[in-house]
Design a binder for these strands. Structure first.
Lengths: 194, 194
DNA sequence: TGAATTCTGTACCGCTCGGTACGCAACGTG
DNA sequence: CACGTTGCGTACCGAGCGGTACAGAATTCA
């Protein structure tokens, strides 16, 4: 069986560049020509390797979440409070650092036209998945005795992601890490003490 | 002096419909054909009355902020804590009620392509203006003795808008008012007590 | 070396985008 | 009623969109 001409670029490395573009410009603000220019490949190569624009966006979302190391690290923290603080501090860092401001899961496709409805829903579903994971973690903390009995774990999860995504919005608008860390200082006061 | 044929529609009433479309779909997700269909006017009428798409969007932003009664009401509350709580409760109501989910100032143009850069910056500037206004209100509260001396008023303002915009993001993803109110219950714990 | 297979680059497709030219209709004024 | 002025509706514009056909180049296997 013949294998054919080998691909001349690395799939993941070019996908990272696509992530950066979607991150900066959102799904609808990104044209295929933006993607091909940033990725350094031609259009047919893009289609052969990643499928159409929507499919590429989904792959970019996957890649983005896989690379969000601070989220995994956060969930591994020993206490609910540490989980939340690690998450929020890490979010400040990742939304104001390097590639692009903000968070792909927030402004990749927050409000869109009808055509991009499935993309918008998919992005929203991933945000909800974060909340669900956090709620489970907090419910575990309740069982562990790490959170006081009677603590509203779902409410706490809703509150935490809300701050999370609020950070992303403000970062997209040019907020500085210092400013956001001060806000996180205050946000942590809402958390049960220990 | 001759006055010419009178306009056959009400400027503000049709502008409200444009607000609803931008609110639902964002700036880049909204085509002119979406606007003309929703507003019930033809394209040349739209251009004559409101200017081009970008100009219409700005007018929609103005209209949206003018109609955001809960924000004005919030700023008139007697204490800093009441200002914040009124603001957040009102945001929950307005982002999950009637017209469209979320907040135009958040997802009207959060991340965009280069073409819409000025629109994105304009929208971000309005978000910053909210923060500035809130900071001033809190600094006044400090002078009033309503906030304890040494309280971080800018940080508190940054925190409050962060929760504000976080609510908008979650509402856009389909969060219920009950869920968001529970999160606000917790968010208020971060506020200095009285 | 030749056949089969796969990637690359050019050049193109139909469609929709934001924006406008132009002729007609509706008004106030003389 | 004639005129100037303004809004309305149709029909159109160039440009850019997402997506693809096709021919040539690069590779493996027989």
């Amino acid at each position: 069986m013949a294998t054919g001409r080998p691909r001349e670029f690395d799939l993941d490395e070019r996908l990272d560049r696509a992530v950066a573009v979607f991150w900066r410009q959102g799904y609808e603000g990104t044209a295929l020509s933006d993607l091909t220019a940033a990725m350094g490949i031609n259009r047919p190569s893009l289609y052969a390797a990643y499928g159409n624009k929507e499919s590429l966006y989904r792959k970019a979302l996957d890649r983005y979440m896989d690379r969000g190391a601070h989220v995994r690290e956060a969930f591994a923290q020993p206490t609910a409070r540490a989980v939340a603080e690690h998450l929020l501090r890490g979010t400040v860092a990742s939304t104001t650092g390097g590639d692009a401001p903000g968070c792909l899961m927030v402004h990749g496709a927050l409000a869109t036209g009808e055509q991009a409805g499935t993309v918008r829903d998919e992005t929203a579903a991933r945000r909800r998945a974060n909340e669900t994971a956090l709620r489970r973690r907090f419910e575990q903390a309740l069982l562990d005795g790490d959170l006081a009995p009677g603590t509203d774990a779902p409410g706490l999860a809703a509150y935490t992601v809300l701050v999370w995504y609020g950070i992303a919005v403000q970062a997209a608008g040019g907020a500085t890490p210092e400013e956001l860390h001060r806000a996180v200082d205050i946000a942590m006061n809402a958390f049960p003490a220990p």
